[in-house]
């Protein structure tokens, strides 16, 4: 579904991603895990066209999307939810959701379906997005992305800045999404334990390179991963 080959990303003279390969099959749920500053966001921003890649290849459903503007990649079915969410603070929750479906007219009832996933948004439909709590904003950001009806949904640090209880709530919704086998899900996360509980397979990124990859179970059992990320000595 998504295939990243030998990708290099740089900010100015500083290269932050040094040749990463990632492959995600349709319907798969894949984690990109690693600590803060490992290059996860740089990789994902390059994938969705927010930051130009220095070199490499990115294919979505077999078609090269490298160098395409973000809006075209979004319309091609890859929707990215950045860690900073990028909501429209002065617009209502409903308007934010409708913007998710901007390129097409949203199917009737689609908004209700998404809101059903995040009941908290229901009561706040008419409220400005900027007035929501952090957890609600994250739910809105995911909801907005779902309204686009994406084939590949890319979530960047969905638990960032959230209290554990709220992060649990967000992850509960993600588990429901995981079971939807039409949706390919890519999840970048530094809370490795959380991520490994959700995903089928994951890549461990360190210093801009893929350090390890494997199924969630393999990685959970890997002593290095345990030591470095799971706090198990």
């Amino acid at each position: 579904m998504l295939r990243v080959e030998d990708l290099y990303v740089a900010y100015g003279d500083i290269e932050v991603v040094h040749g990463i390969d990632v492959e995600v099959a349709p319907g798969e749920v894949v984690g990109i895990i690693g600590s803060n500053g490992a290059g996860k966001s740089s990789l994902l921003r390059a994938v969705c066209g927010l930051h130009p890649a220095r070199s490499g290849e990115i294919r979505l459903a077999g078609r090269s999307i490298i160098g395409d503007p973000t809006f075209r990649i979004a319309r091609a079915g890859l929707t990215y939810v950045p860690a900073e969410r990028r909501l429209f603070p002065d617009m209502t929750v409903l308007d934010n959701l409708l913007m998710g479906a901007y390129p097409q007219r949203p199917a009737p009832g689609r908004v209700d379906e998404v809101v059903a996933l995040f009941p908290r948004l229901q009561e706040r439909r008419r409220q400005a997005a900027g007035t929501l709590s952090g957890g609600e904003q994250q739910m809105l950001a995911i909801g907005r992305a779902l309204l686009a009806g994406p084939e590949v949904l890319v979530l960047d640090e969905p638990s960032t800045g959230l209290a554990p209880a709220l992060a649990d709530e967000v992850y509960a919704a993600l588990r429901i999404l995981r079971d939807d086998r039409d949706l390919t899900l890519i999840l970048a996360e530094q809370q490795v334990g959380r991520a490994l509980a959700l995903v089928d397979r994951a890549y461990v990124i360190e210093q801009g390179r893929v350090r390890l990859q494997g199924t969630a179970a393999e990685l959970r059992d890997d002593p290095d991963v345990q030591r470095a990320y799971l706090g198990i000595a």
């Binding site: 927010l50 979004a74 950045p82 686009a148």
Partner: peptide, 10 residues
């Protein structure tokens, strides 16, 4: 309100 957010919405 948010150029990047809008681009991500297509």
């Amino acid at each position: 309100q948010d150029e990047e957010g809008a681009a991500l919405c297509g």
